[in-house]
Design a protein around this nucleic acid. Structure first.
Lengths: 345, 345
DNA sequence: GCACGGATTGTGAGCGCTCGCCAACATGCC
DNA sequence: GGCATGTTGGCGAGCGCTCACAATCCGTGC
């Protein structure tokens, strides 16, 4: 009695192994392995016997041992900066979701600052987890070079801050998004559009700025004043106050929704009405933007699709393909109350 | 030439192992292991020789093999629901950060719905990653029972939706937060405060509601009307419209900032001024709330501290301690423009 | 010059799994 | 009946690491 209980206790200590399952099912460990890996070379009744044993023992395959033997983890890593921001966090969960659907585990590690050291550290952590590829979602201008300078032994896929280049990359066409936003304002009759940009060293910020510039250029118009923010509502507010002082600004394209919120607030405080005096368009379509005051016209990005494409590229890279390819998804304008026709004066 | 290059290529195939380092340093693999584990039983010059070899070979310890041998992964898992919401996502990154600082890897997996199946699935994935403990950040009323019904072989720590109970749990005192928010409004002279709650099956929502109720009761006042939202700005807007129709409501405590944004919008549209006609207080202190119109009075939670405490509890549980303990951090009121003294009429 | 104890280092046996290869058996054909 | 063929299953060698233990080194004291 005592012996049995102590034995059972000892049995609990270590979880059951393949050998235990094999013994219970009356087969060899190899057959168990075959069942686990869906090998066709197992007779149906054997398979069922093994399955029964697995269930009875509550067996669970030891991933570490499998990894050690196969050298394949089925895991892809993702390094992301600024996970607190809407875009990056959406991308992270989209990639995670898509990865899971493709049968991969996605390990996300955030970097707090953009030094080579921080990046090296993040990548090291991922490498320790034996990831088979790394998705880089760091939109900084230098991120690509930084990552490349690490000369990793595994494929890399970019998923943000994408410019055409010699890497695998999936992204959303920021330039196009900014163009449709700006064109929307120009179509409403505004002679020029001001711009509050994100931090200038972010690829996204540069691209949105470029789209804004192009929209003017295509119509032979001169872009309105340009101010630099840092993605936060606070910086939008500060820049909004400055813009409010220029009575000739009738439309603003803001680099993201958070800054747009700040701009809206500054305009209210300055007594300028939106959209009667000034039209405002944001970028991101955060869930709250429909409830800003007034509801914000903005640009929506298809994050789930972006995630799927990124994972697809990753899988392709893992399959040996190394032809660099860039996939760009098109963003979409969401028109709401914050943009309106230019007011005759 | 050809041989050398092909050999180098072959060498690249598999990354260097301890044996390679040992050979290069002229020691045994065991000594390398000792160096790696900072054992004191290694002479200084030997240690340096090994380090040099490690650097030269670009050696990196194989975590899978180590895990296989030690049965310790140094990883803790976290299952979280609603990672798109502010609170949960802050908690996730706080735990991740704190875990890292404590020398643990934190693997987060999100669940999309709150079925037993989804939870089982998430936990399975974590178990496959050999996590040593699981932090559960699912604020649903039933989450605790659900998780417990899985009868996991590893410690569990709750980090959200905490009620006193027989588990390890770290949380933020939601009742206290709701009380100070409501008391703030009562202090301003409002006779009663309305409440827009979160989904009633969320522990947090129930606790915030309870704090709101307690604040009234402590002063012998009757709570104002209560409406149920779902954390989204949209539900706040809908409920805001309903409240706007009751001229006798002069103060609202809203379950989170997103809903508060919706309430503000509804009040604007109904022509009721904030805070002159109605005061509004939120909960969360999202970064944007200072830029709502008007700036939102709200309750801030100390997420980083929460993360640290959760990890601390986890480490303690891993150390064998199994006395259930609940740690509650105090939230703080942030007073802004959306709340003001009751207007004499 | 030698035994002795502590400081260093080496040896060998797993951890649980997969892979390559071979053994056993059933089947079909001549 | 004997053989080639196809199907199932078993065996043993690692994967790279840590652990327990054994072996070696060194300075010391006599």
């Amino acid at each position: 009695m005592v012996a049995e209980s102590s034995q059972r206790e000892a049995g609990r200590r270590r979880s059951p192994s393949m050998a235990d399952v094999a013994a219970l099912a009356g087969v060899s460990h190899q057959t168990v392995s075959r069942v686990l890996n869906d090998s066709p070379l197992v007779r149906e009744d054997t398979r069922e016997r093994v399955h029964a044993a697995i269930v009875e023992l509550g067996y669970r395959r030891n991933a570490a041992a499998r990894l050690l033997a196969t050298n394949q983890s089925g895991r892809i890593g993702m390094v992301s900066a600024h996970l607190a921001l809407y875009g990056p966090s959406m991308i992270a969960s989209a990639v995670q979701q898509a990865g899971r659907e493709a049968g991969y585990d996605v390990a996300v590690v955030g970097v707090l600052e953009l030094s080579e050291e921080a990046l090296r550290d993040a990548v090291d952590r991922l490498l320790d987890q034996a990831v088979e590829a790394i998705v880089v979602a760091v939109a900084h201008r230098d991120a690509l070079n930084l990552v490349r300078s690490l000369s990793l032994p595994i494929p890399i896929v970019l998923v943000q801050g994408v410019c055409r280049g010699d890497v695998m990359a999936a992204g959303i066409d920021q330039v196009a998004g900014a163009r449709i936003a700006t064109e929307h304002l120009l179509d409403l009759g505004h002679r020029s559009v001001a711009h509050v940009s994100g931090p200038t060293d972010w690829t996204e910020a540069a691209q949105r700025r470029e789209g804004w510039r192009q929209a003017h250029e295509a119509r032979g118009l001169l872009p309105g004043p340009e101010l630099a923010g840092d993605w936060t509502a606070g910086s939008g507010y500060d820049n909004g106050l400055r813009i409010a002082r220029s009575p000739d600004v009738s439309a603003i394209f803001v680099g993201n929704d958070a800054m747009a919120l700040g701009v809206l607030k500054a305009l209210h405080e300055a007594g300028r009405s939106v959209p009667d005096d000034v039209s405002v368009v944001g970028f991101d379509d955060v869930p709250e933007s429909a409830f800003y005051w007034p509801a914000l016209t903005t640009v929506a990005q298809a994050f789930p699709e972006l995630g799927r494409r990124a994972v697809e590229l990753t899988v392709r890279a893992l399959g040996g393909e190394d032809r660099p390819m860039v996939e760009l998804a098109a963003p979409e304008l969401v028109v709401r109350a914050s943009s309106g026709p230019v007011r005759p004066r």
